[in-house]
Every structure is written in structure tokens, then in C-alpha cells.
């Protein structure tokens, strides 16, 4: 939760609720991917899912679970960065979401460790 000092910004608004202030350019829509690129990203995701499923039918020994987890993480990051625009948006959004995600990961892995789940 450490607030990095770079968050404080150039607050320009002279008046918190000025009347009829011009609509500030909403940052979300200026760039990001075109529709074509979204379709390509979706196909990549579909391919990874297919890979995961086929991997589970093959017997690849000990690297099976790590491979699955890596592919899951890749799909996760792709959807979050591109479909949810986190890659192009302000860093505060990434901070809010990833702090929640990593906290959940850390706390629950530690809890399962005390159950000797990974032993």
C-alpha cells in the first residue's frame, strides 16, 4: 500500500466544480488496440487454452503443473493488460488491482503452507 510520491500530479482544476468545464479527453479511448488486433489477441488466448487442454491429456511428467500455471498466468496478464486496458491506463489502476491480487496470492499461499499443502 505504499503510496509512491509520483502519484501527486499536476492538479490543474482551478475550481473543483467549475460550471460546464470542457469534457477532459477521457484517457481510455485515445489509443489501445484496434478491433483487428483484439481479434488476434482473442485467437492467441484460444490457442493457449487449447494447448492447456491438450497438455492435460499428454503425460509430460513433473513439468506438467508448472507449465499449466505459466500458461494460466500468461492468459491472465494478456486479458488484464489488453482487454482491460491496464497497459495503457494510468498507473494508479495497475497499483490498485495488482496490490489486491498479489496480496491475495501471498496470504492464501502462506495459509495453505501452514496446512502443509505443498509438502
Amino acid at each position: 500500500m505504499s503510496e509512491s510520491t509520483t502519484l501527486d500530479e499536476t492538479a490543474t482544476g482551478t475550481d473543483a466544480t467549475a460550471q460546464h468545464s470542457p469534457e477532459p479527453p477521457d484517457d481510455g479511448h485515445a489509443h489501445g488496440a484496434t478491433d483487428g488486433q483484439y481479434i488476434v489477441i482473442a485467437l492467441i488466448l484460444a490457442v493457449i487454452t487449447a494447448a492447456e487442454v491438450s497438455l492435460s491429456y499428454m503425460d509430460v511428467g513433473p513439468i506438467f503443473i508448472p507449465a499449466l500455471l505459466v500458461m494460466m498466468a500468461v492468459k491472465f496478464v494478456i486479458v488484464v493488460s489488453y482487454f482491460m486496458h491496464l497497459k495503457f491506463d494510468n498507473r494508479i489502476f495497475s497499483f490498485l488491482f495488482y496490490s489486491g491480487l498479489l496480496l491475495a496470492l501471498g496470504v492464501y499461499v502462506l495459509a495453505l503452507a501452514t496446512f502443509e499443502f505443498f509438502a
Partner: peptide
């Protein structure tokens, strides 16, 4: 159209 905020982002999205 949210009024000007400190970070320039909309409350709803945050």
C-alpha cells in the same frame, strides 16, 4: 463527464 479531479481520472473507474 466528471469535473476535474486530482489525478485526472474518473471516480467511477478508480
Amino acid at each position: 463527464g466528471h469535473p476535474p479531479t486530482t489525478t485526472g481520472l474518473s471516480h467511477n473507474k478508480l
